[in-house]
Design a binder for these strands. Structure first.
Lengths: 200, 200
DNA sequence: GTGTATGCCAGACTTTTGTCTGGTATACAA
DNA sequence: TTGTATACCAGACAAAAGTCTGGCATACAC
């Protein structure tokens, strides 16, 4: 009755099907897998899926619909792209963002994108119009490129720690370093990625 | 009994919640929306959702679980990241890629990522170690930054059309332009995006 | 043979989830 | 006043989707 299928062959196809569905639209339901492969029993689809979970090729949330996911999801997160950030208004700027950017990430990070204004970092290959991806973190290390709120506008500079104080260094000889006093500067986060879209 | 909520305010929050969920993990179920906003009736969540559909801000598949989607999904594509490309081997290089990158795209394009080697384009803010996203297209316009196969290695240069011939210009005074004869140079495609990962 | 594993099926149960009917309270305009 | 709209709630029903028990057939090792 049962036509013989080499071990693992169907499962491989099931894996590719599920993977494709997860990446391109929505994780399939068990019955959607069943129908895609014309299994006559739901259980057959379920067995393949549970097997893939046992093998570590998929992970799932028990009992929830469309609960199958990829183990280390390419970790694509959509982060808000901000036009400009003004004093104190990071939260507000995120609410009113221009759009969203896909970013690879481990998921639990708080990221945002920011459009670059000015030429103070051209020496580091960061040009006006570029987009920087910023991870929100209060403290950063000396040498990191950071986004800081100085006065009432956000700027991008290289951070230098000097004793108890901090310095914000441009990377362009035409600009001079900023030496803020403690209370007039907030570090919004560290630049983890730079992007430049050459069209559109 | 009912605390008064300004018209549309809750709906706005519901929209943002749903959008975030769709982009970052999985579309929520109606009851997940209900719980997120602590509505005491499922119907309240459903009314907001159906309203958003009526307004065209969401679309849905009737009867299916987690059926709410965004109208014009950002279209995220995963493109292969190549380490290096050698003569004739673009197809082969794509097969043996180092990994995949999420890229926003209209879908029908043939894209690949390429790691930058050398300093010939530092003047355009393209540094060694950066990744360029390339759209495969035989012909490009003068002024485009392109990836060309000259000899047996791929290089990134700015394209200049001069009469019938082409010139490949570096963007760094320490390098000299390449003036290839027609048959010793293939344009693999145009650089549409530049990325730099500052950690990991 | 026996035992074990895989691949598949039949049918049912249970939970989750989508859907629906009818209701209350507030605000606003005719 | 009446009517209409929004925002919300209560409780239910029905479909979708996850889960489970038991079974059969083939293959392979002991």
């Amino acid at each position: 009755m049962t036509p013989f299928t080499p071990p693992g062959e169907t499962r491989e196809k099931v894996y590719r099907f599920v993977r494709r569905r997860i990446l391109e639209e929505l994780p399939p339901t068990v019955r959607e897998v069943q129908e895609a492969f014309r299994f006559r029993a739901v259980q057959t689809a379920r067995e393949h899926l549970e097997r893939l979970v046992a093998e570590g090729r998929l992970v799932k949330t028990h009992g929830k619909s469309r609960g199958y996911r990829l183990p280390q999801e390419p970790g694509t997160l959509f982060v808000p792209l901000l036009g400009r950030v003004q004093a104190g208004g990071l939260r507000a700027a995120i609410e009113e963002c221009e759009g969203y950017l896909p970013v690879q990430s481990r998921g639990s990070e708080e990221l945002f994108g920011l459009r670059v204004q000015g030429e103070s970092m051209t020496g580091a290959g960061i040009l006006p119009g570029d987009i920087v991806i910023v991870r929100q973190q209060g403290e950063s290390a000396s040498g990191d490129i950071v986004v800081a709120l100085v006065g009432d506008e956000a700027t991008i500079k290289r951070l230098r720690l000097r004793g108890n104080g901090i310095e914000l260094h441009p990377e362009n000889p035409a600009f001079t370093p900023i030496l803020p006093r403690g209370d007039e500067c907030t570090i919004l986060g560290k630049v983890v990625e730079v992007r430049r879209y050459l069209e559109g």
